[in-house]
Write a protein that binds this DNA or RNA. Sequence first.
DNA 1: CGATTGCCTTGATCAGGATCAAATGAAAGG
DNA 2: CCTTTCATTTGATCCTGATCAAGGCAATCG
Lengths: 248, 248
Amino acid sequence: MSLHALKLAPQDCGDCPIRHRAVCARCDGPELAKLEEMKYYRSFEAGQNVVWSGDRMDFVASVVSGIASLTQTMEDGRRQMVGLLLPSDFVGRPGRTIAPYDVTATTDLVMCCFRRKPFEEMMATTPHVAQRLLEMTLDELDAAREWMLLLGRKTAREKIASLLSILARRDVGLKAKAAKGPISFDLPLTREEMADYLGLTLETVSRQMNALKRDGLVELEEKRRITVPNFDRLMNETGDDSDGGFLS
Amino acid sequence: MSLHALKLAPQDCGDCPIRHRAVCARCDGPELAKLEEMKYYRSFEAGQNVVWSGDRMDFVASVVSGIASLTQTMEDGRRQMVGLLLPSDFVGRPGRTIAPYDVTATTDLVMCCFRRKPFEEMMATTPHVAQRLLEMTLDELDAAREWMLLLGRKTAREKIASLLSILARRDVGLKAKAAKGPISFDLPLTREEMADYLGLTLETVSRQMNALKRDGLVELEEKRRITVPNFDRLMNETGDDSDGGFLS
DNA sequence: CGATTGCCTTGATCAGGATCAAATGAAAGG
DNA sequence: CCTTTCATTTGATCCTGATCAAGGCAATCG
């Protein structure tokens, strides 16, 4: 029986473009058994809320399948996505009981949960877990800072191109990128969610998507099905360095 | 003899508005001695560069005094600040040798450094240090996400008000905030640095600063000396929830 | 002392996205 | 089949903040 969240070690998926965020990549003795017995699963439908900002959250979890988003909302309704949780990403902060953001299932979602109290106790006695969690958190911090550059300084077109290239990489892997073949994938976000991710309005997202289509940078056969004929040409629109230094 | 970075435990400075980020708040035996013998100090003048993005960085450090900033720059020169390091903040990522950002001394700066290799070794054998570092990193991640909301969704005026209220809190503490008296502090940033922090141009920063002054929300006797007569009125301009849930 | 330099302010104009409004299209339901 | 709903597109207009261009002011230096 598989312990999803715990078995994914980075070295197990060398090609994967996403930084895997297994809770514990290195422990395989009693700690794993302890985690195994405290875990449980929860499923959510697309659009369903997982926790509200301000709620008590007495579990930590990692995403098994599907996508969840973290969003912040201002009183007047302005919204900003601040995190996008992909499979194997971790959510919940040891030591903090109140959720600081809304967590929402963007697609159908399965999470592997651990009650916070025993998880924290285990962390205190198992150095590997704390270290792995630190690594993961540092990766997330780097991603957040990349995102800050996007929000603060990129144009609408660059923002869209950046998001699409992130999703393309995630779905297809760096190998495919190197291969320079066309890349196809499903957009897991609505126009509005994309707008919340990018700090734009949904109208601007729509217009810029169609602009990229007009310019032949992407093909949009079905509104939510994207094909990128030439990844490098898309990258040129992102404003990022050509190498796209994504992983360390 | 003081081990600056290590002696600051959160509970030692209850009033301080800034989340202290001591490397090790809880260890006080052999680990402290080990850290003590591997530490060394480096000083920088205002404006001086500490590391360039892409450089090899074979130390980790914590800020003793002064302010440093982390910035990202695009090829065409657009710049975004992604971190502001205040005293007791930590910089440098265990496990990563290449600096992902430019680190610059914004004011005169003293840092307490540890060579990376021995620091990492110590981390591996001292669970408290990894746990403390995890806490600090999670705090930083929360700050980054707050910052993302600012960059993505706030107006120029709200951005300025937010920055000023952060600085005001830092310099004076929550107690003073509660006391509702006027708050004075020195701006440690130029208009351009503020702009890079906020995702604006320096002209817009200048205009909005003067607008806040005209509206009586701040007083600017000397361009870099700020007085906030009524903190709550400034907070109302930030767009944040009134409570200003700053710490946990 | 005048010249230079760095930082800040101010003004005029422009443009990228936001906003408001309406239409389209596809899927779901009665 | 018609209606409803939701996601998306498209159009017209507006406005915030960017851009371009000068000018002020204080500190520093020759």
